[in-house]
């Protein structure tokens, strides 16, 4: 198992995808954090001159700034990594040599999933480095409190969880839609466009906003990092741990379906 995981990690780090992703993570995290920090604190200064804009709690502001990459849609990057991890094997027919060296397929596929978790965490850390450096600097410059509470650390670690979850969803999608290009388009389309739009639509329907919306992936993502919710203000929101469980359930169901299928299907 350890061997298979090491093999999967080497696969990721021997193509140019990995450093492109790493740069993307750091830069996107930094830009989103700086922009959000500037928006919150600058607006506050213009409005009332207070250090605390609107009636928001500084902890929630810090949470939002450091995880600003999430509502900006950075989860499509781990999603892409997940799809490519298996989709690339189908596309370039390397899945044959993968299953030849590790013919117990469940072992090979679980090794993939575990390697993906490690890769997602590393990329998430890259995103956090960018976000915290740029976000804290901007908050500091504009006179805010960069680290108002310990809860901020929880939000940071939850960003890593969100990265892992979306990567595993990508793995599942990549297996269930064997054409890599189609898998990428469909997964990103659903996650980035369709789901958020449905979420916005639902937020205008009272019952939906109170009973359904909180289970949507993007809404659960907001809840888990406890940021300021732009999409559906006033909608019901899960506790952070409940939201984490919901996200994990999405990941396990999709990746599990994919692994089950890939473990038994013909490889030709």
């Amino acid at each position: 198992m350890i061997n298979a995981i090491r093999s999967e990690l080497r696969k990721y780090f021997t193509t140019r995808l990995w450093w492109g992703m790493a740069i993307g993570m750091v830069v996107a995290g930094a830009l989103a954090a700086a922009f959000f920090a500037f928006t919150f604190l600058r607006l506050a200064t213009v409005d009332g001159g207070s250090d605390v804009p609107f009636d928001l709690d500084p902890t929630q502001i810090a949470n939002t700034v450091y995880t600003a990459a999430l509502p900006s849609g950075i989860y499509v990057l781990p999603l892409t990594i997940g799809v490519l991890q298996i989709g690339g094997e189908y596309r370039h027919k390397t899945i044959t040599s993968t299953f030849l060296t590790t013919p117990r397929r469940l072992r090979a596929l679980f090794a993939k999933a575990i390697a993906l978790v490690i890769i997602a965490v590393l990329n998430g850390l890259g995103c956090l480095v960018g976000s915290v450096l740029a976000g804290a600097t901007t908050i500091q410059l504009l006179g805010g409190d960069p680290f108002p509470a310990l809860e901020v650390l929880r939000s940071l670690s939850m960003l890593l969880l969100v990265m892992v979850v979306w990567a595993l969803i990508g793995l599942g999608a990549g297996i269930l839609i064997p054409n890599q290009v189609a898998a990428l388009l469909i997964a990103i389309g659903l996650a980035w466009m369709v789901e958020p739009f449905i979420a916005i639509g639902l937020s205008f329907w009272d019952w939906g906003a109170q009973n359904l919306l909180q289970f949507f992936p993007t809404q659960a993502t907001s809840a888990v990092v406890n940021n300021v919710d732009f999409v559906a203000m006033g909608a019901a929101r899960l506790e952070w741990w409940a939201a984490a469980l919901i996200l994990l359930a999405y990941a396990l169901i999709l990746a599990g379906l994919g692994i089950w299928r890939a473990s038994r299907e013909d490889v030709s």
Partner: peptide, 13 residues
Amino acid sequence: AALEATGFHPGRS
């Protein structure tokens, strides 16, 4: 086993 000549990722050495 050497099954087919195409089973390589083009971006990997």
